[in-house]
Design a protein around this nucleic acid. Structure first.
Length: 120
DNA sequence: ACAGTGACAACAT
DNA sequence: TATGTTGCCACTG
């Protein structure tokens, strides 16, 4: 896994259906505790890769912010896409786009798997 | 080489 | 709780 983005995608692909994690937690797993913002940027870059089948089934909806809230805000009156996707897989998202982390937080990867992704 | 850009997060009000 | 501020970092033109 050469670059940071690819490492982020590798982790995101491992998030189980019906679970969520945060940008910061992913950054921490990759050994970059302060790169949370870059994680969000990596996911944002996915929309330019939609054509590539390798990124087609990326469960990006399972990444929310540290407060357990969806960070993507689309224009008012339109249903939140990320909330829809999460509800489809059984995650309860309230009207304020919040998810109960005590229930749905993903435990994360074991260090062995992390090393495999980061390449050490 | 360098300034601009966010799907962040921690902290202070 | 809800905002606002500030520091951060990888990537881009």
């Amino acid at each position: 896994m050469r670059n940071f983005y690819e490492q982020v995608y590798a982790v995101v692909r491992r998030i189980p259906r019906g679970k969520v994690t945060s940008y910061g937690r992913i950054a921490n797993m990759l050994g970059r505790p302060r790169a949370a913002r870059a994680v969000g940027y990596a996911l944002n870059a996915l929309k330019d890769k939609q054509d590539d089948p390798a990124y087609a089934n990326m469960p990006w909806q399972r990444v929310i912010n540290s407060q357990g809230r969806i960070s993507i805000v689309n224009r008012e009156n339109s249903a939140n896409r990320q909330a829809e996707l999460l509800r489809q897989e059984g995650v309860v998202v309230d009207d304020n786009l919040r998810v109960n982390l005590d229930v749905y937080l993903w435990e994360g990867l074991h260090w062995v798997e992390i090393d495999d992704i980061v390449g050490r």
